[in-house]
Nucleic acid binder design. Structure first.
Length: 506
DNA sequence: AAAAAAC
C-alpha cells in the first residue's frame, strides 16, 4: 500500500503530514497527488469525508514552495462554495504548510475588507475564497488573477446548486490559460461536465467510490409521529427530539440537529437551551464571527448540540459526531445522505434519527428511492408525551364573523392576541355544527385516512406503531379545526411569533 | 415548505 512517503511531496510537507499523524493516503489522495505533482489537471470525483482537501493542499504546497509571491498577484487560488468550507481549507494549509514560508489569505464575505486587502497587497501564495467576495475584490481593482498558476474548484456540484457556476466561469477566464486546474465534484451533472470540458486540459480523472449511504457505521432510524393538529407539529417534534436525546443518554456525546429552515433552527436551538440542553444554532443569517465561534465551540466540545441548516450538511469537517437528528425530513433527497454522513465517520459508530410526520411522505419516498433501501423504523422513546393544546384561533377565524376589527383602536398584533382567547367559543361552536352544513375542513378527514393506509401498504403494513398523542382517537373537533394558514404577510408574522414564543415555554 | 453567497 502506498505511503505518503512514497509520494513525491516536499520533505517539509511530509514532516507536517507525519506530525498530524497520517501515514497512509486515502484513495482520493493516492490517486490525485501524483498527477497533480506532475502539473497535470485533475478531475476528482469524490464526496466529502474522503480526504479530498489534503489531496489538493499537499501537492499545492509542494509545487508552490519554489518561488515567491508578488503584490496583488496570488500564485494559486482555491474556490469553495461556503465560507466555512473556505475557512476549513485555510486551516488545512496552516497545518500542512507550517514548515514552509508560504503565505495565504482567506477571502470570504461577512468579514471586513481591510485585513484581506492588506494581505493581498503584500502578496500571497495561496488565496482561498468564496466566489462572491473574490469577484468583489477583483472589481475593486485590488486583485490580479493573471499570476495564478494553480486553481482549485472544490465542491463544484454544490457551487452549481448555489448558482455560482457563472461566477466560476468568469473567474476561470480571469486566470491564465496555462494554469493547472484541480477540480472536485461529488457528481458529474451535465453542467459540471460542460465546465470541465471547457476549462480542464486532458485531466486525469480520479474517481472514488461513492460513500455507502447505508454505511455499516451509521445506524439509521426513522421516527414517525402523527401530530393531532398541524399547528402543534413543530412543538410535538421538539418534544420528541428531547425525548430522543434523553433516551440516547450518555451515548449521545454530541450531535448535529438539522432543520430545513433558518427560523426553525433558531426556534429549536432556543427551545433546547430553555430545557437546559447545551445547544447553539448555525445558519447563514447569523453573523460570520458567531458562525465561526459556534463551530469552534462544537469542535472543542463546549457546545454539545449544533442546531443547523444545511450550511453544515456538507463539507464541514466536524470529527466524531455521535448523533445526527433530522428535525425535518430534508426536501432534497441528496441532503439526507450528506446530513447523516456527518456521523459514523472514520470507522466510528454513529446514529442518525429522522423525525417525520405524514406531511413528509413524499420526501421520504424520494430518500428511500435514492438510497435504495427503506429507512429502518424506530420506536418512539418512552419519555415522549406530546402535548395537545386547545385549538388556537387564527387571524382568519375572526375575519369573517359579524364582528369587524375596524374601529377597535388597537394595533393588529395586540388584537390578535386578545382575540385568540375570545375566539375560543366560536371554534367550539363550529364543532357542534352538524355535518349537513359541509365545511372545507371536512374534506381533510378522508384524505388523512387515505394517506395513512397508503403508507401502511407501501411500507409493509402497520407494525403496531405506538399510539401517539390521541392516536387515531382524535376528537373530530380537533381535526376540523385545521385551517389553511392565512396568507397575508402580517398574519404569517403573528403566527410565527406565536410559535417562537412558545419555544421557550413548551 | 428552502439554503447558500456580495455590498
Amino acid at each position: 500500500m502506498t505511503k505518503f512517503s512514497d509520494l513525491k511531496l516536499d520533505p517539509k510537507v511530509l514532516s507536517a503530514v507525519a506530525d498530524a499523524g497520517y501515514e497512509t493516503p486515502t484513495p482520493i489522495q493516492a490517486g490525485a497527488i501524483p498527477p497533480a505533482l506532475e502539473g497535470r489537471d485533475v478531475l476528482g470525483i469524490a464526496q466529502t469525508g474522503t480526504g479530498k482537501t489534503a489531496s489538493f493542499t499537499l501537492p499545492m504546497i509542494t509545487l508552490l514552495s519554489k518561488g515567491r509571491a508578488r503584490a496583488r498577484m496570488p500564485r494559486s487560488l482555491v474556490l469553495a462554495p461556503t465560507r466555512e468550507l473556505a475557512a476549513q481549507v485555510a486551516e488545512n494549509f496552516d497545518v500542512y504548510a507550517k514548515n514552509t514560508k508560504l503565505t495565504k489569505a482567506l477571502l470570504i464575505g461577512g468579514v471586513s475588507f481591510g485585513e484581506q486587502d492588506k494581505l493581498i497587497d503584500r502578496g500571497v501564495d495561496v488565496l482561498i475564497a468564496t466566489p462572491g467576495r473574490l469577484l468583489d475584490h477583483f472589481e475593486r481593482g485590488k486583485l490580479l488573477l493573471t499570476g495564478v498558476q494553480i486553481m482549485v474548484v472544490d465542491e463544484a456540484d454544490r457551487m452549481l446548486d448555489m448558482g455560482f457556476i457563472p461566477d466560476i466561469e468568469r473567474i476561470f477566464q480571469l486566470t491564465p490559460f496555462t494554469r493547472q486546474t484541480l477540480f472536485f465534484s461529488a457528481t458529474m451533472a451535465p453542467e459540471i461536465e460542460r465546465i470541465t470540458n471547457t476549462f480542464l486540459h486532458t485531466p486525469v480523472k480520479v474517481e472514488v467510490a461513492r460513500q455507502a449511504t447505508t454505511s455499516e457505521t451509521i445506524e439509521q432510524k426513522l421516527i414517525e409521529i402523527t401530530p393531532a393538529r398541524r399547528d402543534t407539529a413543530a412543538k410535538n417534534k421538539r418534544e420528541l427530539l428531547r425525548a430522543l436525546i434523553r433516551s440516547e443518554g450518555e451515548a449521545c456525546t454530541n450531535a448535529i440537529i438539522f432543520c430545513n429552515r433558518k427560523t426553525e433552527v433558531d426556534i429549536v436551538a432556543k427551545s433546547l437551551k430553555a430545557h437546559d440542553f447545551n445547544a447553539s444554532p448555525i445558519h447563514g443569517d447569523l453573523d460570520q464571527s458567531q458562525r465561526m465561534r459556534t463551530l469552534d465551540g462544537f469542535r472543542d466540545g463546549s457546545v454539545r448540540f449544533l442546531v443547523a441548516s444545511d450550511v453544515a450538511a456538507r463539507g464541514l469537517d466536524i470529527p466524531a459526531v455521535s448523533h445526527v437528528f433530522n428535525f425535518d425530513v430534508p426536501s432534497h433527497a441528496e441532503d439526507y445522505v450528506h446530513r447523516i454522513g456527518r456521523t459514523g465517520r472514520a470507522g466510528r459508530k454513529g446514529r442518525a434519527f429522522t423525525i417525520a410526520t405524514p406531511a413528509d411522505e413524499k420526501y421520504l419516498a424520494a430518500i428511500e428511492s435514492l438510497v435504495k433501501a427503506p429507512i429502518p423504523r424506530g420506536e418512539i422513546p418512552e419519555g415522549f408525551a406530546p402535548s395537545v393544546s386547545a385549538p388556537r384561533a387564527r387571524a382568519s377565524d375572526d375575519a369573517k364573523p359579524a364582528r369587524s376589527r375596524s374601529g377597535r383602536g388597537r394595533s393588529r398584533s395586540d388584537s390578535a392576541k386578545t382575540e385568540a382567547a375570545v375566539a375560543e367559543t366560536p371554534v367550539v361552536e363550529a364543532v357542534e355544527t352538524p355535518r349537513a352544513e359541509p365545511r372545507r375542513e371536512d374534506r381533510r378527514e378522508p384524505r388523512r385516512d387515505d394517506r395513512r393506509s397508503d403508507r401502511g401498504g407501501d411500507r409493509g403494513g402497520d407494525r403496531g406503531a405506538p399510539v401517539v398523542g390521541m392516536g387515531d382517537h382524535v376528537p373530530d373537533f380537533l381535526l376540523r379545526s385545521f385551517r389553511p394558514r392565512a396568507s397575508t404577510a402580517s398574519a404569517a408574522k403573528t403566527t410565527r411569533t406565536a410559535v417562537a414564543d412558545s419555544a421557550t415555554d413548551d
